[in-house]
Structure formats: C-alpha cells, structure tokens
Design a protein around this nucleic acid. Structure first.
Lengths: 204, 204
DNA sequence: GTCTATAGAGGGATAGAC
DNA sequence: GTCTATCCCTCTATAGAC
C-alpha cells in the first residue's frame, strides 16, 4: 500500500527545478546555495534533500523538460508536407526559446559545467544530437526534393544550420539593442544561402 | 630608493595569470581556490595576494594578452592588399586560437561570468567589439571592391561572420572526432556564400 | 504502526583574505 | 599559518496518510 502519490512527487520535483533554474541561470551552479534553492521553492532545506540527493542532481534534472519539448517539435516537423517551412519553424522555435531572458545565462552555465562534469556533457551531447538528427532529417528531405545542395552531407549541413541558430543564445552578455525578429530573418536567409542548390555552377 | 622592478612585477603577474588560466578553464572561477592558483604558480598564498587583491582580479587580468594579440592581427590585416585573403586569415587565426585545448573551456567560463559580473561583461563586449570592428572594416573593403553583397550592412555581415567562426569554440563539451581543417574550410565557404554578391538576382 | 513529507539546527570541511 | 564565514549535507523530530 503506497502512501505516496508519484504524480505529486514528480510535480514537486519540477517546481523545485523551476525555482533552481532561475538561480542557476543568474548565479551559476557553484554560486547558488542549496538554502537559496529551498527558499526560492518555498520549502525547507530538509525537504529539498528529500526530493534530490544533492545540488548537482537538481541541476541534472533540468534536462528532462527540454528533451520532451523538442521530441514533440520534431515529431510535428516530420509530418509537415513542406520541409522548408518545417525547417523555418525549427529556427523560429529556437529563437523563441532563446528569447527567454534567462536562457542565455543558463546555456553558458550548462556549457561551462559540461566541461567539468561528464554526466552534464553527456546530457548536453544527447540534446545536441537530437537537434542534429532532427534537422538532418529535414535537410535530407530537402536534398531528395532537389532544393538543397546535395554536395554537403545532411549531417554536416545540419551542424551549420545549428551553428547559425546558436547565434540566438551563445552571446554571453546582454545586448540590449538586439532586434530578434531581424536576426531570425537573417538566419533563415543565410541558412537558405548555405543549403540552396543552384546547380553545378553554384559556389561550393 | 625602491628595490622593486616594475617589469619584473608585471612578469610575475603574467606568470600567475598563466597558471590561473589553466585552472579557470578546467574548473571554473568558483571551482578554483586561491590556494590552487598559488600552488600552480609556485608561490605562497601570501605572495598571491601581494600581486592581486582578490581571486577575481586574477580573472580580470586575463583579458590583456588577448587584446594585444588581436590588435596586432587586425593591424596586419589592414595593410594586406587582398581583403578576402585578410578575412580568411582572421578565420584561420580564430580557428588556431580555438584549437588550444584549454580555450573552449575558458571561453564558456568567461561567458558565464560575463552574465554575473558587469566588469567581465564589459571586457568581453570590448573584445567582441574589437573583433566586430576589425571584420566590418574588411567587409567594407569587400563591398567597395564589389565582391560582397552591398545589401547587408558591414556591421551586420561582420556579426554573422563571427557567428560562423564562433562555431570553433562555443561547443561546450569535447568532440573527439572534430576535423578542424574541414570545419575551417566549410566556415570559409559559408562565409563566402553569405557575403558574396551575385548581382541583383542573388538570393536575398 | 509504518511510511512519506517537511522542517530546521548543526557538523564538518573548506573557502577567501590577510 | 590563521581566522572568520559559509556551504553542503546529515540528522533528529514531528505531522499526517493509510
């Protein structure tokens, strides 16, 4: 006879992760204390360590929501009839995610941790690979349609697409005068230029 | 009569910075103790605080060498007759810098700190602006030569050139199977595609 | 009575600064 | 080497659901 409600337990964990995410983004992992996380989540230190065995475990738990979200996004892209439109929607989605004011700080912190913690590196790489595979699948459709340069392998092309969309969030300091709509439009244009197949004489 | 030699003092500071750089890159700022820095530099903890008022001051001192190096590089690019070759040399230089095994870790750490420390943010932005201005000047020469798309402002084009070269070092985890020569070549090709002016009917 | 959820104080270690 | 502050986590205690 289980007295525990698994759904409530999961819910509580996600609340804690949400509160911690904000602190990690602004102060970093090492710069955030477990006491701060507990206070932000409105619970005691004891309760925090009931839900997570360590501060690091809270950090690692952040990767789950993102994974689910992108799995759904690529599933949706897969059933779209127009692969160019699907690719642009992926770009829009990355731009929207990056527009969250906390995201830039969170990403650099995650990347910094990935350099020190192999498990973080594994989660980052897994997420990156999901993005890469999803985009490569779309590029592959473009090639088979004949609207993308077949000279570049789909995986390579996908990597450079992601490099261009990385521009939305890798900058490490706040740039107040960013025009995100214009950036998104430019990124799409450059992606089109990078991938488009103009025939045998195209610049390669 | 002061027995202190200013040049020796500067030399000593740079030695400490060099030792600390390695630790910051692998462990981060918060993850590095002043005791470790002192030990790595072969001095006592007391001596460390003689040369720097705080751990943060050691971190901030890292930005000087990089600035001098890039100032020289752009001065050299400015006197080259072929701006495309000069631009490619900048790309090569970024790639070479990024090939240093510590550089990737150091950059993400610097960016993470830039999100929390306004002074770090200022130094990063100043460095970024130097890169941007240097590249924009080259793009401007390309436009005046008629070999770059005049429809995109030089500053915007320069930003996207830097976005592509950022690919050399923003990835936060080690990718063992990276082919840096191929990446550099692809970056140059994509930069050419992004900037090149193919006449009024070019894809924009 | 057993198990889960929560609280909060404090241990033990370690950090930065001098 | 020392000193003070702080942090992560453990430990004990209590409340309530079954």
């Amino acid at each position: 006879m289980r007295t525990v409600d698994p759904e409530r337990h999961r819910q509580r964990r996600m609340e804690i992760v949400g509160a911690a995410l904000e602190l990690f983004a602004t102060q970093g992992l090492a710069g955030t204390t477990t006491a701060e996380i507990a206070r932000a989540a409105g619970i005691s230190s004891g309760a925090l360590f009931h839900y997570f065995p360590s501060k690091r475990a809270v950090f690692l738990a952040m990767f789950e929501a993102d994974r689910e979200e992108w799995d759904e996004a690529f599933a949706a892209a897969r059933v779209r009839s127009d692969p160019w439109a699907a690719l642009e929607e992926v770009v829009d989605r990355v731009a929207a995610e990056a527009a969250h004011p906390l995201m830039a700080g969170l990403i650099v912190e995650v990347l910094a941790q990935a350099h020190r913690d192999p498990e973080v590196a594994g989660l980052v790489e897994a997420g990156d690979r999901r993005m890469l595979d999803g985009v490569a699948e779309l590029v592959d459709r473009l090639c088979r349609e004949g609207t993308a340069d077949p000279g570049m392998p789909a995986a390579t092309a996908a990597r450079w697409v992601l490099t261009l969309t990385d521009a939305f969030h890798t900058r490490g300091y706040p740039e107040p005068d960013r025009d995100r709509a214009a950036e998104t439009a430019t990124a799409k244009r450059l992606i089109a230029r990078a991938l488009r197949y103009d025939g045998p004489g195209s610049p390669a």
